[in-house]
Simulated assay, not measured.
Amino acid sequence: MQRYSVSAALVAASLLCATSASAEMIEGSAFYAGLWKGLGVRDAERNLVMCQVSLSGVQGERIDFSLWSNNRFAILMAPVGVQFQGGQQYDVSIWTNVETAIAVPAVAMGETILIVEFTDIDWAVDYLEDSQILTVTGEGFQQSFSIASANQALAGAKSCLEAYAAPG
């Protein structure tokens, strides 16, 4: 279990970038879903809970899915060998092996992480359902992420959110 605690702390580093300084990992919220690692974070200052699942690829790529108690869904992507300008908006397209491409705005969080947000968790989960590959293409880069077991991981994140989100 200690190995997981260290991994969960590493995953939380990206979470805290997207939340306020008052955000804290929720004790007992860590879970595995296949190769995905998940955990919950509570931001008491903003009265929000976020549950995230994270997967690192064999080439160093990383992808996280974050579900927020205010019905936001975020995809955090760290493509291999791509540098961004923190805070800059990028126009990207994403698609899966079972869904067609959609054009979405993304924002760089630092030099290595790109974030795409959706305002409807159920829609985003439906879009990713049964997918094995998520591809993102943008200005000068394209990266495919293996998201095998995403259904299981997203179900775990939704259960986490249901368990720890404050009512109403």
Rank of each mutant, 00 (worst) to 15 (best):
T137V: 07
S56D: 12
V136Y: 14
V98Q: 08
S131Q: 11
A8K: 00
L48Q: 14
R72P: 00
Q143G: 09
T112C: 06
A21E: 07
Q88F: 11
M25A: 10
L67V: 01
V98C: 13
S69G: 01
S66N: 09
V92D: 01
C17S: 12
A155W: 00
R46P: 02
Y127C: 08
A33S: 00
G38K: 04
C17N: 14
I26E: 03
N151K: 10
V98I: 10
Q142M: 14
K37F: 11
S146H: 05
A155Q: 13
D130P: 06
V80G: 09
R62S: 08
Q89Y: 11
W36I: 00
T96V: 01
A18P: 05
A153V: 09
Q89I: 07
I26S: 05
A150F: 12
G110A: 07
W95P: 03
A8Q: 05
V49G: 07
P105F: 03
N97A: 02
A108I: 05
V116R: 03
F65R: 10
D130I: 02
F73S: 07
R62I: 13
Q142I: 12
S159E: 14
V11N: 15
V80W: 05
E27T: 09
Q89L: 05
Q85V: 15
V136F: 06
E162P: 09
L114N: 02
V58Y: 12
G60L: 05
Q152T: 15
Q85T: 07
